[in-house]
């Protein structure tokens, strides 16, 4: 674990997330192994790694869907429900008769809850969110008629309304065209500008190098964690790939036992 776990240097930024010897997994099989380190408030962090590296598992751990097998995640006083999470290939029932407008409006759930009304300011906010993702004119369309890119734009509009301090995106740009990716990246930059913490699981290294200042290279354990150029250096990528190929085995982990 060479550059993993940036050392706190007493700067003014407080950590939004801190992993302490974190192990996450399913039925005792770890998917994320002994992860240490912290994510500062307002960070824009890419999480890269081969398939099965534990990237999605880490996301599910952060939102509290998965309890750690060992270690802990400190959320810096953040309520788990103050975290917006866009799962990988979000499992939305596209045949359900609901309009783009209503789908986006659900982003207000934390404010409106089960019964709260949606007032004029909320309507303005919804309209702004829909405009921000470039879906004006699609408000009354049923979600079943949207293309893959339009659906992802809808989900991003909902994320906008959630107004969360911590935003987790699991492969948000998979199977999208360049225009859509660039539009949605604008939103990610906007969140970054608003000092929100954004974590995104990504596979496109060029995109990560261009837009994400920090990267966590994960292959069960952290291979590298730091500035993107260093983290994605060729020797680290090679190491991550080797780790990815060498998986399997049922022997109990000595450190974890």
């Amino acid at each position: 674990m060479n550059s993993a776990g940036p050392i706190m240097t007493g700067n003014s930024l407080s950590p939004q997330l801190r992993f302490r010897d974190l192990t996450l997994g399913y039925e005792r099989h770890p998917a994320v192994h002994h992860l240490d380190g912290s994510v500062e408030e307002g960070a824009l962090l890419a999480i890269c790694g081969p398939n099965g590296a534990g990237k999605s598992t880490l996301m599910r751990g952060i939102i509290g869907q998965l309890r750690p097998l060992a270690g802990a995640i400190e959320r810096g006083g953040l309520d788990p429900r103050d975290i917006a999470y866009l799962p990988q290939g979000a499992q939305v029932d596209r045949s359900f008769p609901i309009s783009v407008y209503d789908m986006v409006a659900m982003g207000l759930w934390r404010r409106s809850g089960l019964f709260g009304g949606i007032g004029r300011t909320d309507r303005t906010a919804i309209a702004e969110a829909i405009a921000a993702v470039g879906l004006q004119g699609f408000e009354t369309r049923p979600i079943g008629t949207l293309s893959g890119g339009q659906m992802q734009r809808t989900l991003f509009a909902r994320l906008l309304l959630q107004n969360a301090r911590l935003i987790l995106l699991d492969e948000p740009f998979t199977a999208l065209d360049a225009k859509t990716v660039s539009d949605l990246l604008d939103l990610v930059r906007r969140w970054h500008g608003e000092k929100r913490t954004v974590l995104a699981v990504l596979h496109d290294f060029d995109l990560v190098r261009t837009h994400f200042p920090q990267t966590l290279l994960l292959a069960r354990s952290a291979i590298a964690w730091g500035p993107t150029a260093e983290a994605l250096a060729p020797e680290n990528l090679l190491k991550a790939r080797r780790m990815g190929e060498a998986w399997g085995g049922d022997e109990p982990c000595e450190v974890a036992a």
């Binding site: 029932d93 659900m106 019964f115």
Partner: peptide, 20 residues
């Protein structure tokens, strides 16, 4: 009373469980 969660659980159960 249960309208919103009922609708949301049909459309996007993962999202519902993340907010409520």
């Amino acid at each position: 009373v249960i309208w919103r969660p009922l609708v949301l659980e049909c459309v996007d159960p993962a999202f519902l469980s993340s907010v409520s």
